[in-house]
Deep mutational scan, measured.
Amino acid sequence: EPELVFKVRVRTKDGRELEIEVSAEDLEKLLEALPDIEEVEIEEVEP
């Protein structure tokens, strides 16, 4: 069974934007590691 992958769009407080694809596990780590995120948009990517 393929692992869930999420497309994550992040905007930081200083206005930088970042778009990455991460696994569910990595997404959890990412959110814990970035306390200064202003906006996060997450969508599931079809395998």
Rank of each mutant, 00 (worst) to 15 (best):
F6H: 03
K13A: 07
V45T: 07
I20H: 02
A24L: 11
D36F: 08
D14G: 06
E3N: 10
V40D: 02
E44H: 09
K13N: 05
E41I: 13
K7V: 06
D26E: 10
R11C: 08
A33W: 13
E32A: 14
E17H: 11
V45M: 10
A24T: 04
L34F: 12
V40S: 03
E32N: 12
V8F: 04
I20Y: 14
P35F: 15
D26M: 10
E43R: 11
A24H: 06
P47I: 11
E46H: 13
E43N: 08
V45Q: 06
L18F: 15
A33H: 08
I20N: 00
G15Y: 01
E43L: 15
A33V: 07
K7N: 03
E43Q: 10
E19G: 02
E1Q: 13
E21C: 15
E44M: 14
E43A: 08
E19L: 14
P47V: 11
E44S: 11
D14A: 04
V22A: 04
E17C: 15
E28G: 09
S23T: 11
E38Y: 14
V40E: 02
E44A: 13
I37C: 12
I37T: 06
L34E: 03
K7Y: 03
K29F: 06
V5A: 06
L27S: 00
V10T: 01
L31D: 01
E32Q: 12
E25Q: 11
T12R: 06
D36R: 04
E41L: 13
E19V: 14
A33L: 11
L34Q: 04
E19W: 15
A33E: 09
P35V: 14
P2T: 07
L27G: 01
V45P: 05
E3K: 14
V40P: 02
K7R: 12
R11L: 07
E17V: 15
E25A: 13
L31G: 01
F6T: 02
E17W: 15
E28Y: 14
V45S: 07
E32R: 14
I37Y: 14
V45G: 05
E43F: 15
I20T: 03
V22L: 08
I20P: 00
E3C: 15
R11P: 01
P47K: 11
L27Q: 00
L34A: 03
L27T: 00
V5Y: 11
E17L: 15
V10G: 02
D26T: 06
P35I: 15
K13D: 02
L4R: 14
E28M: 14
V8N: 00
D36S: 05
L34M: 10
V8R: 00
R11W: 06
L30D: 00
L4E: 03
S23N: 10
R11E: 01
V45K: 08
E41R: 09
E25D: 09
K7G: 00
E28S: 10
K29R: 10
